[in-house]
Design a protein around this nucleic acid. Structure first.
Lengths: 244, 244, 244, 244
DNA sequence: CATGAATGAGTGTTCATTCAT
DNA sequence: TATGAATGAACACTCATTCAT
């Protein structure tokens, strides 16, 4: 195959994948037909089989170069951010911004691929997995650097992040809610870092030190901390395994 | 129809739904055939159509009485718990415990129903929706009672909860990870309430009051309060919309 | 079976046949289901099989007693009419009047039974066949008695009659045209007996008489036309009812 | 699609329609299966659906080009005939000859299509309707030209013709009677024009010529026939509507 | 006498996929 | 490279009919 041929091949594949993304997003994998895709791509059905081995192959190709690229370019950029929370924010923003921008892809990812057992194990699944890996690494980094609590499994933290992202993205593609996904980035970071419990600020800290004229001797301080309603003092927690 | 007939009908429906749940969980909706379900239920295919109008009808019936009942019994019990966080914990526990106990149902819910546009609008979807509603109400209650921050939309908070639950449940049914879903209840509550940011707890507060039998000078303690990072005094936040 | 039982059986059969007639007339044989008939008869489906051996059996029973009776009572009455044409008119009138009165039966007969190869050979088909036989006999009688031309096969004449009856009856049940079938009785008799051709009156008769010079007297021609019974001198027609 | 492709498509359609005609003629519409047709056409079942949208579509296509063509070529030829009766004879002959030649088509038309409510309204039904229209026009023409009686509605006359044709054609395809349909053409025309009533033929015409002595000269006979109302001078009948 | 319950047998139709051109 | 043409394989669904009660 000539150089030009290879290029042409890539263009055709791109054309088919694009059409498939649109069709799958609109109808789902099973309801969509190769015929639908061919029509959308303005090609004949057999032509699709020139470039892909099966309908599933087309599906699995959707999260292709595109997202691989995205991750590849994002990774170095992450170093621009200071601290794990900021880096995490960078990743979340990137993901949600991507889903917001390409909602057809979001639909395919959330409604079709995510549930597909076969998709895992696919090379293309790596593109997705890498994002998750990145998140995990950043969280671990945050824990190592003392920015994040270490008593919560990084895996679990990541699950909260991914879960929230995917839930809201799914909602978006299913009900086409009006708000932009990007709006959720800060609330997520906020809830994740600080939680939703109301905690008394430092203003509330009352340290009562009563000193009695002492005649010698030394009295241990009254349980001064009794009044130390510093709030949410982390209750002693039992060891727990939070993830696999 | 006689009383017995009605009873019989319910039994048959139950039998079919149970078989369908198993089959759908294992193969997915489209890969599963009515024939599979009939075989599993030890019935003939037409018999299924005596009790259901279509394959989809069978699917949509799965989250039936069972979950309706569950919610109905859970709701009053919720009052046993003190505070919104505890109530939320109750709901989360119930859900995850349910999914853990009936993983076939979990699979059907996470991998099939959740993505199904048609399922929404079904009467049976209400069983699910009620759970979400309950969560929302508890969160609102928590905000009204000053237990939860009011600067995060209750809808968003709920999304974090649901997202985490569904993500981990999906993982469980997809990869059959070994840990029990119930293990995640406390971490979720913990992350949700307190966040993952490291905050100096009271434990860290060191108030050194050194009293010397001394009339002379008095040395203020070393910047003892330095450690008084009672933390997370909520930074002034810019107004933000967190969701609809 | 008791006498009463026999009676009951007949009543049930009648009830089913009546329902079936209605359903078949509306939907055709294949589109109608036993379930439809059972519903219409307010019976359960198996009950139908208590009285009939199959769906087809129900169909073939429709032209039952009813029409047998009709023919049986009509036959003797035919003698009231003078002449074959009048008798034929009697038969035609009876048939069309019957179809007009029971259009459901007409629909079943015209749209379903007439085309059914299996129906022929059925005992019930005789009811129908008898009518045709009667017609044939009357036509033959008309030919024997010099009322009808003998150079046209009586079978063919009968075919004209039956064809016209059935064509117009079919039209009626298919398009529900507004006119009553009975209106067609006289036109049919008229066309059948006299045809539609305008026949040259004597005007066309050219009698060339060449007279030779003659010395005898000359008598004005007799009213030459007197004997010109060129046929079809319109017989005095009896008053006729043209409507239903 | 290429020119050749178009041609091929037509060939395939023809092939399928031909097979379907045979199968439908033999088994009826409902008893015939797509599988039967496919086997007869030596094609796979799906291939039939490449060319037709449904079993019904195949059925409705049967009275296709063929009969459209037939009518189109017949119409101009009609002018070869002198007089309405002759033209009518031409039409009848054409129809019956067609049915005689293609008895499979006749069976489909008589036993299936004629009764099908849905078929009416189909474009293909026009081919059939045109024939009927042609008949009607010829009859009207005959009435206008004084060849046919005007006191019988042309619609009714046509009904006699169509009814007779269809009845005998139906008989032929149902019982496979031995006589050729074409044999019926003349009897039909004969009955239609002159009726079956016995009328005194010309033999009965008595011309009495009395010759008177001649005085020279030769006078053509007076229009002696002036008064010769040789019969069926259509009595003024009240207008009657005999059809729609 | 009546029927609830169950099913065998069958059908039209769809669609991913192949192959000759 | 592209596709018209063809099909194997399946599947949801229907319905007349049976039988135990």
């Amino acid at each position: 195959m000539s150089m030009a041929g290879k290029k042409r091949t890539l263009v055709r594949r791109e054309q088919i994948v694009k059409a498939a993304k649109k069709v799958f997003a609109a109808k789902g994998f099973y309801e969509a037909t190769i015929s639908d895709i061919a029509r959308e791509a303005q090609l004949s059905e057999p032509t699709i089989y020139e470039y892909f081995t099966s309908k599933e192959d087309v599906l699995f190709t959707i999260p292709g170069e595109q997202s691989v690229e995205a991750r590849r370019t994002m990774e170095p950029n992450l170093n621009m951010f200071q601290g794990a929370a900021n880096k995490l924010r960078g990743i979340i923003y990137t993901l949600w911004n991507f889903y917001q921008t390409d909602q057809e892809y979001a639909a395919v990812a959330m409604l079709i691929l995510k549930q597909n057992r076969k998709f895992i194990g696919t090379e293309n699944y790596n593109a997705v997995r890498q994002y998750f890996r990145l998140m995990y690494d950043v969280i671990k980094e945050g824990q190592a650097g003392g920015e994040f609590r270490s008593d919560i499994s990084p895996f679990f933290i990541r699950s909260v992040v991914i879960g929230t992202i995917e839930h809201l993205t799914t909602r978006k593609v299913l009900y086409d809610t009006e708000n932009s996904l990007v709006e959720f980035v800060d609330p997520l970071i906020e809830v994740l870092t600080n939680g939703v419990a109301v905690r008394p600020g430092p203003a509330d800290i009352q340290v009562h030190v009563t000193m009695s004229p002492y005649s010698g001797g030394f009295a241990p301080p009254e349980p001064a901390d009794a009044g130390l309603e510093v709030g949410n003092a982390p209750k002693p927690r039992r060891e727990r395994r939070t993830g696999s």
